[in-house]
Design a protein around this nucleic acid. Structure first.
Lengths: 170, 170
DNA sequence: ATATACTTATATCGAATCGATATATTGGAG
DNA sequence: CTCCAATATATCGATTCGATATAAGTATAT
C-alpha cells in the first residue's frame, strides 16, 4: 500500500522522505507516519525498486529504478480497492490506468459506497427505533456516517460524469 | 483505544465479541477487525477489567467488572482526541462526561477541524496553481478533502448548537 | 432427507501502520 | 547572536489490520 504510493509519487519526480510525507498528506486522506515511511523507503531500496541520490544537506532524494517502474505497473493492475484508502490511492494514480478501464474503477467504488450507505441507514433507523434510550451523541455519529457517505457518492458521481464526458466528448 | 471502546460498550450491557464488533461498526467510523478484537478481550480479561460468562452456544458474554468501570472513567477523563477515531469514540461516550465539560470537547474538536480545513485549502490552491499539470484525479481528491472537512464542521456546529440549548434551555 | 451455502462466532498469525521519541540541522524572529 | 520553529532522518514498541482456519447453526434448494 505505502510501497505503491511511494513508487507512484517517485515516478513523477525524485523526492526525499519528508517531501513524500507531505505530498501524500496533501492528497488529504493519509497522514502517513515516519515510522511507516522510512522503513518502507529502506525496504524498497533493498529490493532495488528505488535508489537514493544525495541531495542538499542531509536529504536523500530517491528516484524510481526501472524494476520499480515495472513493479508499480503490476500493482496498478492488481484489482482490489477494498478500503477507502486503497481506493483513494488508486484514484491518485488513475491517470496511469488506460482510459478505457477508468470508468469501471469508479463505478465499482460507487457500488461499494451504495452498499455502505444502506448499512449506515439501517444502523441509524435501528438505533432510532430501539427500545433503549437512543443516545443523542451516538445518533449524531450515525447520522454523520449516513451524510458523509451520501456526500461521497455525490462527489464520486461528479467524477464519473467528468470521466464520461472526457471519454465520449474529447 | 479499542480497550476504551469495549469497556464503554460493555458498561451498558453484557455482549459477546461478535456483537461488540457489530455495535462498534454500527457507529459508522470503525470496522474493527477480529484480529484486534479478540486479543483485546483476552487482554482486558487478564487485567481483570472484564469477565466472561458463558452465553448460549459458543458465545462468551462479557461484562465489565468494578475495576473495569473505574478504568473506563480514567480513560474518559484523560484528554487528547488527536485522531478522528479518538474524537468519535469519545463522542460515543460523551453522555458519561459531566454535562459542563461536554461543550469544551466539541469546541476543541472544532478548532482542530478548522486547522485541518485551512491545510486542505492550502494544498488545494497550491496544486491548482502549480506549474506542473494539475492531475484531474488528484485535484478531485483534494477537493473532496476540503468539502468533507467543511461538512464535518457543519455537522459539528449542529451538535454544538444542540449542546448549548440543552445546557441553557433545559 | 440431504446437499449447499450463508451467517454467526471464536480464534490466531504475520505484516503494516501508528504514535512517541531522539537527534541534528536550517532559517527566521527578536 | 540567541532562541524557537520547521525541516529532516531514524528507530522502537504497541496497536491494528487483513487473511485465514474452524465449526456450528440456519435457511434454501433439489
Amino acid at each position: 500500500m505505502l510501497d505503491f504510493a511511494i513508487l507512484g509519487l517517485l515516478r513523477e519526480q525524485p523526492r526525499h522522505g519528508y517531501e513524500l510525507k507531505r505530498a501524500l498528506g496533501d492528497l488529504g486522506f493519509w497522514q502517513v507516519s515516519f515510522g511507516s515511511l522510512y522503513p518502507a523507503l529502506r525496504r524498497l531500496e533493498k529490493q532495488g525498486f528505488i535508489e537514493a541520490a544525495r541531495g542538499e544537506g542531509r536529504r536523500k532524494a530517491y528516484r524510481v529504478t526501472e524494476p520499480g517502474r515495472l513493479r508499480f505497473g503490476e500493482m496498478l493492475a492488481e484489482s482490489g480497492d477494498d478500503s477507502d484508502r486503497d481506493f483513494q490511492l488508486r484514484l491518485a494514480f488513475l491517470g496511469y490506468v488506460e482510459p478505457e478501464s477508468r470508468l469501471a474503477v469508479l463505478e465499482d467504488r460507487r457500488t461499494a459506497l451504495q452498499d455502505r450507505l444502506h448499512g449506515a441507514r439501517r444502523s441509524f433507523r435501528g438505533a432510532r427505533s430501539s427500545t433503549r434510550n437512543p443516545d443523542r451523541y451516538r445518533m449524531a455519529l450515525m447520522e454523520r456516517s449516513v451524510r458523509s457517505t451520501e456526500a461521497d457518492i455525490a462527489w464520486l458521481d461528479e467524477l464519473i460524469a467528468g470521466e464520461r464526458s472526457a471519454t465520449t466528448g474529447a
